[in-house]
Simulated scan of single mutants.
Amino acid sequence: MDFQNIYIEEEGSVAVITIDRPKKLNALNKQTIKELHTAFKELDKDQDIRAIIVTGSGEKAFVAGADIAEFASFSVKEGRQLAAKGQELLFDFVENLTTPVIAAVNGFALGGGLELAMACHFRVASFNAKMGLPEVSLGLIPGYGGTQRLPQLVGRGRAMEMIMTATMISADKALEFGLVNYVVPLEELLPLCRKLADKITNNSPSAIKQAIKAVNAGYSYDTDGYDKEIRAFGECFGTDDFKEGTTAFLEKRKAQFKGS
């Protein structure tokens, strides 16, 4: 895969996607969104990859937002299309990816950057991280799922405050709010994410896929999450991973999961 704005590194069963537009503080433009879509899609198909980490190049920014120059002159119709296409290609796509995705938030995660981090299955931040949705300061609202995912993660009141004041919060505050799972020094960010990813890869890929679907169903307005859980639980009984996992437990050995 040849990319202009991102690069991928693979180590064992873990892939790291790095957004690499340092002069633009890794801001998301159409090209970068397309490249990220392609990367996530291909890695999700790769049975050897069992966890994905996404981060930004350098120490200043995970993703500092969208590339404003690209849409400053858009019409109402073009604005709707921008949001719809972005959610389809990247934000909703990542949230529903069946390979676990960890956001390694280094530095600024603003606007579309925070929305990308929130679309990941969970987040780890460095101490220098700053997070916020500043869109109202531009006469906009978050358009890549921010008005939906932020309340789910931090609660309605805090989300309303963050969105309406356009305030950035610190990594420690993000941890307090439940927006991130861990906060560590910058040099420990990727090592911790890799450690967490390695723990994930020790478990059943087929069960993890079902768990992601079941958890996401609980946040869908038109889906019964409990029913989805029951069905997903039942599906697990038909997998080779279930047979291997239960057999390994009874034989008191480590399971060797193949993801089928």
Rank of each mutant, 00 (worst) to 15 (best):
M1L: 08
D2M: 09
D2E: 14
D2P: 08
F3I: 03
N5F: 06
E9F: 08
E10C: 11
E11P: 05
E11K: 14
S13V: 04
T18S: 08
I19E: 00
D20C: 09
K24W: 08
K24G: 02
L25S: 09
I33Q: 07
E35Y: 15
L36F: 04
H37N: 02
T38Q: 13
T38H: 10
Q47G: 13
T55Q: 04
F62T: 04
V63E: 04
V63T: 10
G65E: 05
A66T: 10
A66D: 10
I68P: 01
A69N: 12
A72C: 05
S73V: 14
S73N: 15
F74N: 14
S75R: 09
V76R: 08
V76S: 05
E78V: 07
E88P: 02
E88D: 11
L89F: 15
L90Y: 01
D92L: 07
D92V: 05
T99Q: 02
T99P: 00
P100E: 00
V105K: 01
V105E: 00
V105A: 04
N106P: 01
F108C: 04
F108W: 11
A109Q: 06
L114A: 11
E115W: 03
A119W: 00
H121Q: 02
F122C: 02
R123N: 11
V124A: 02
S126Y: 00
S126D: 00
S126A: 13
N128I: 10
N128M: 08
G132E: 03
P134A: 09
V136A: 02
S137Y: 03
G143P: 01
T147L: 14
R149S: 00
Q152Y: 08
G157Q: 15
M160N: 12
M160T: 15
M162V: 09
T165A: 08
D172F: 15
K173M: 09
L175Q: 13
E176R: 14
E176N: 10
E176M: 07
F177K: 05
F177I: 09
V180I: 12
N181Y: 09
Y182G: 04
V183R: 02
L186K: 09
L186I: 14
E188K: 11
P191G: 06
C193L: 01
R194W: 07
K195H: 12
A197K: 01
D198K: 13
N203K: 11
I208Q: 13
I208T: 14
K209Y: 05
K209T: 07
K209N: 08
Q210P: 06
N216L: 12
A217E: 03
A217I: 13
A217S: 14
Y221V: 14
K228C: 12
K228Y: 05
E229N: 05
R231N: 09
F233T: 10
G234W: 03
G238H: 13
F242N: 05
F242S: 05
K243Y: 12
G245A: 08
K252T: 11
A255Q: 02
Q256K: 14
Q256H: 09
G259H: 00
G259M: 00
